[in-house]
Design a binder for these strands. Structure first.
Lengths: 343, 343
DNA sequence: ACCTCTGCTGGGAGCGCTCCCAAATATATA
DNA sequence: TATATATTTGGGAGCGCTCCCAGCAGAGGT
């Protein structure tokens, strides 16, 4: 069992000191080219790699970013949202040569263990937190520490944190306007949980758009829990109100709603025009293809990493809110090509 | 800006030495109860947390496990497989109080950077590698280092590594037998990529089962790339051969196949009985609900962590292969409740 | 030839912890 | 009470790196 090589060993072999090797490894320009070449040769030949923990300790920076996702974990990946977010964050860390540490809450026991692990000094340089539900305890906790963090989504108390969000409200409003323009007159809403800020914003945006168009949902409102099943149930209930259009606050729930519509012997988009939110489900997954308000999740993740890095290195000091626009992608489920529904 | 507390500081406040505090933190039993109590009081009061990097350096163990997923990243989470795997691995690391580092390959540039990052000493204690395609360069590379690793899936050269796999072959065989028992006589196969071991095993298992039942696929064979679109195309082509049953090597591709069947004006399961592999798509996602061979992905992930931990701590030294059973879940798409198809 | 200035290099100190051995104290045995 | 033994505690050494300052060489100016 041969010992691991360290800077000193490489230095000895190259006839230079520890410090010089360190400079070469860190691309410090103050090294004579020939010296540098020699050291690099030894490094290549020995396969030397600097020890990450030692580096972190000495430099007080780990090169690791934490992503904390608190949610009912079992069904986490049933919704494409988190996968995409992880993809974006991973892309962001990769481009900075950083490492991504993923913290997923399972049950409540994990939660407290993770909360304390996340703030352990010397483990991560900063954290990205998804603010799925209002009153996220982790955010409060982080606020009391000096661990840099950014929130994905809109945090409850807007002013004190860095965050990256999408224009939920604007997107939902656009959906309402589109449905109205299509001539639909009995719009329904399947909202996302009202204990999430995204859910609240989408609901308000939709109602706002409707109001602008002189429409209202009246009693045609249901609420799901993001799951497909909840969308189906909500839709089944709503059917009694004979809506001619529905805005479903997430793709996932929309898939369920679609099922309920079909099970009732109705046709989407002919009988009911549907627009959902997210734009994450591959269009071909459903028949008809979902028209939905697309949010750029991957970009959100990437951007969150960049923002966090600027917080870590002190470039950003005053709370900053980045909001990405959302855009309605018209496909089949809204029935744009059909013209107004026959009453 | 107050300095971060260290063991020495806590010791001073509690009137004991650095070492004693360390013992308390690490639950070493050789501490007098009252001393322990006093130290714990100081820790609680100051909110002290040991520095992870310092710990890693001194103890030569990081408490971090790496999960490396090499795949076309953009579409990674379109397939529920990886999400579930991550969930399982995350559950495994959480239960050991460990941290999960996630390495996703984006493009080829990421690949080499990640490969070298993964083997950096002092970053992770070990790695879990998904062996999506044959001849995975990372596995070869790891074999040349002393970084502990376990492979999820069957590696090419079976004998030299630790791995956790599922019984792809047996599951596919069961699918064939089931289709045959249903009275189907013109079975087709939409295989997974033959440059993956899972793809090869599923194909062989299916053919084997068919042979046992005295059937054969003849020309009714297609191959997809795991994507839904590829399943659809393969099925569309296959339709010309007038199959009365099809085994699709993944749920995802099966969703595409279902679409092709419907687009051709045929009915599944009446005209074509379909069985897929994975059991990961929520049943209600499709109409009809998919009958599929279920693989316990989450358990695989959990088990991989446990196995890796035993490799890390030296408990396991001789390559060990864990294989989970797979099980056919009969739902609607195979048409079991229909009786034999009318020719 | 002398001095200065710049460019490169070496080495001490220290990051906060664990490991281990020895010292100090408490307990058991004769 | 004296001695042996077990329990608890303290502190040195070191993990491998970065940071910083001092030293040393060679180039340039007078």
């Amino acid at each position: 069992m041969k010992r691991r090589l360290n800077l000193e060993d490489i230095g000895r072999r190259a006839g230079v000191s520890r410090s010089t090797v360190s400079r070469v490894v860190n691309a410090d320009p103050h090294v004579r080219p020939e010296t540098k070449k020699r050291v690099e040769a030894v490094i290549a030949e020995t396969g030397y790699r600097p020890h990450a923990a030692a580096r972190s300790l000495a430099s007080n920076s780990t090169g690791v970013i934490g992503l904390v996702i608190s949610s009912a974990v079992e069904t986490l990946f049933d919704d494409p949202y988190f996968g995409r977010l992880i993809l974006g964050v991973s892309g962001g860390t990769n481009e900075g040569g950083m490492t991504l540490a993923l913290f997923l809450f399972g049950d409540q026991a994990d939660a407290s263990s993770i909360i304390s692990r996340v703030v352990t000094p010397g483990l991560v340089d900063g954290v990205i937190v998804t603010a799925t539900t209002r009153g996220n305890p982790l955010i409060d906790h982080l606020q009391g520490t000096d661990m840099p963090f950014v929130v994905v989504g809109r945090p409850d108390s807007a002013r004190s944190t860095f965050c990256v969000d999408v224009d939920n409200r604007g997107g939902a409003r656009a959906a309402a306007l589109h449905l109205a323009a299509l001539g639909r007159r009995r719009p329904a809403l399947i909202a996302a949980p009202s204990n999430t800020n995204a859910g609240v914003d989408r609901r308000n945006g939709f109602l706002e758009g409707l109001a602008e168009a002189g429409l209202s949902v009246e009693d045609r409102v249901g609420e799901g829990d993001w799951s497909q099943g909840s969308g189906r149930e909500a839709m089944a209930l709503l059917l009694a109100e004979r809506p001619d259009a529905v805005f479903v606050a997430s793709d996932r729930m929309a898939v369920g709603a679609l099922r309920a519509i079909r099970e009732a012997g109705l046709d989407c988009p002919r009988d009911i025009s549907l627009v959902s939110f997210d734009g994450l489900v591959p269009p071909d997954l459903t028949m008809p293809r979902l028209s939905s308000v697309v949010q750029p999740v991957t970009e959100v993740g990437k951007r969150a990493v960049r923002l966090l890095r600027s917080v870590i290195d002190g470039t950003s000091t005053t709370p900053e809110h980045v909001v990405f626009p959302t855009e309605l992608a018209v496909r089949e489920s809204c029935g744009s090509t059909l013209g107004p529904a026959a009453t």
